[in-house]
Amino acid sequence: MDLINLGIKSIFIENMVFAYFLGMCSFLAVSKKVSTAFGLGLAVVFVLSITVPMNWLLNEYILNEGALTWLGPKFATIDLTFLRFIMFIAIIAAMVQLVEMMIEKFSPSLYGSLGIFLPLIAVNCAILGSSLFMAQRDYTIAEASVFGFGSGFGFFLAIIALAAIREKLKYSNVPDGLKGLGITMFITGLMGLAFMSFMGISI
């Protein structure tokens, strides 16, 4: 039950885009068409579901204070948390590369539709952000997996919704200075307001 609650929380209430503003760069840049937004959203869900549990393992067995005890008792006092950023980003970049190669090998059609977005994902703040939140909140491995998938899915929903609105927006008469980024900011704000109504829901 706790896991379902955490899932709902990470998808709707603490949505990566609307509550923490993570992944805004790609959220704004790749939301002009629904089809491309769909591709990017899918890639983010995919990469997040893999990297968050991976980084959990890394955190638990290498980086945390006392995590190296499995090497021998004299390693018990070593605290490598200051290496967190560089290790997490290395894992993410490596995983993205690996996922890209695997998709290319096993499903060329999916690779065709995700192709350009995969390398971009390595520098998407939603990916690194989720891993850092995971480390900060001391999740267990099950919670970390659910959190990773939930955050990804929340991003997926948000980017598709925004892309759908922006496709319609092409036909409206927006003031010159507000075209593009400006009006998108307002729309995102209003969408965030809608997502705030999920606050307090628990099962």
């Binding site: 923490y20 503003f21 200075g177 507000l178 900011m185 307002f186 704000g189 965030g192 705030m196």
Partner: peptide, 15 residues
């Protein structure tokens, strides 16, 4: 709240 941030930034961009 986060919503305020979007709206303030939207207005700054507009101006």
């Amino acid at each position: 709240s986060p919503v305020g941030a979007f709206i303030v930034l939207g207005i700054i961009i507009w101006v």
